[in-house]
Design a protein around this nucleic acid. Structure first.
Lengths: 219, 219
DNA sequence: CCACTAACGCGACAAGTTTTACATTAAGAT
DNA sequence: ATCTTAATGTAAAACTTGTCGCGTTAGTGG
């Protein structure tokens, strides 16, 4: 991701041996390249992605891309990084099942859009360890933002106070990803709602209850 | 997938029979190459997979591999084919939750084995349309074999007669795949059992009931 | 055992991808 | 405005990937 700043040594003698230049041209190049990457991912798909095409589309020389991102994995990792800082947040529909269903509908739309950047990103995450780390952090960020869905439901009295938010969210969303990404079955318009309903039923049956915070135990 | 029969030679009117030779060397070569492919997938991982390395490991010339399988996608598709015809079947533990948990434990073991062929196969399915078709058929086959878990549970009286087997199986197994393959979180020893339990609770709450065969009076 | 030829090995090569060395441009500080 | 040098551009070399023609090996049927 961005320039590998390995310089951060712990020694006290040499503070910053290399003065970076994050301004003007550098950031402009990054923006151009990431835009070109998104466009290529969408149009040509992941497996036909070449660094060369990205560089050409960005109006930048190939060597520049190779130098700064090294390979496709590095490029994608940086894209994850850039994707991560937006202001997305889950809708508030007024009910747990509605919130989860809305989330699923949004995901289904993103994953089945004809040139799907989301699907390309998932495919890409298998490319390199670097990209895998990037996608892991992206998922973590998104699930963290979704936890508010659960806390809202608790406040409304729809769920018991000690509910494992992550487990509930995963139960509600995993079937969708499973079908669209792993099984590769054609999109089922009813699936988002069914999966949400199933998770809510399981939650009502106490499937995601965490052990009550009984007084401080040892250790 | 086996040998691509493009060998139409010239033209004439009658397609020459082209006598194949499935015996001896041909099948031996296929076995060597697929073994080498499995080994490479496990050791080097999917993204570092090269036809060249597979051929070298199989003790076969590159041109042979290119001729018979054309590219990585064809190679992987053939591997799916070979993987599909084994005699695997789900364990019978005597209870629905036990069966589902056993299935999850087995999958978790397969997906976290250090060189995980299973994980590599999933990654590989993104490579080409051909490989994607192969993996889709593999999943279809495995889920079909698992349906017996549900019918056994129905016979035992653990489930109502009209239960959607696929939905139940997906609900029980999807969270595992979601964590291990998409989220890339480290394996959680408790997850297989929890996911199985959640699915059983949802089933008990009627989450997977299919409309009764008789025309019930609509609301 | 023999003839036929599918399937393989070999090496050369075209196309594509990544690295490297050097020249040029422009960010950032004085 | 001027200087320093990080970041790019440029071009050619080094390496990778996939294809092709041709000679050799070994199934298969007689």
């Amino acid at each position: 991701m961005t320039p590998p700043t390995e310089q951060t040594g712990e020694n006290s003698a040499v503070p910053p041996p290399v003065r970076r230049r994050p301004g003007g041209r550098t950031s402009r190049t990054r923006a151009q390249v990431l835009d070109a990457l998104r466009a290529e991912l969408g149009e040509r798909g992941y497996d036909e992605l070449t660094l060369d095409a990205v560089a050409a589309r960005a109006g930048v020389h190939r060597a520049t891309v190779y130098r700064r991102w090294r390979d496709v994995g590095g490029l994608l990792a940086d894209l994850f990084e850039a994707t991560r800082d937006d202001d997305w947040q889950p809708q508030d529909t007024g009910s747990l099942q509605g919130d989860l269903a809305a989330l699923n509908h949004e995901n289904q739309a993103a994953l089945t859009a004809q040139p799907s950047i989301a699907a390309a990103l998932v495919a890409a995450s298998f490319r390199s360890e670097e990209a895998a780390r990037g996608v892991r952090r992206l998922w973590e960020d998104r699930y963290a933002r979704c936890e508010v869905i659960v806390s809202r439901a608790v406040l409304r009295g729809e769920l018991p106070p000690h509910t494992d938010a992550r487990q509930l969210l995963v139960a509600a969303t995993a079937p969708l990803y499973h079908h669209l990404i792993l099984l590769r079955t054609p999109p089922d318009p009813g699936l988002p709602d069914r999966a949400a309903r199933t998770a809510v039923l399981a939650a009502a049956a106490g499937a995601f209850a965490t052990p009550p915070p009984t007084g401080g135990a040892p250790a």
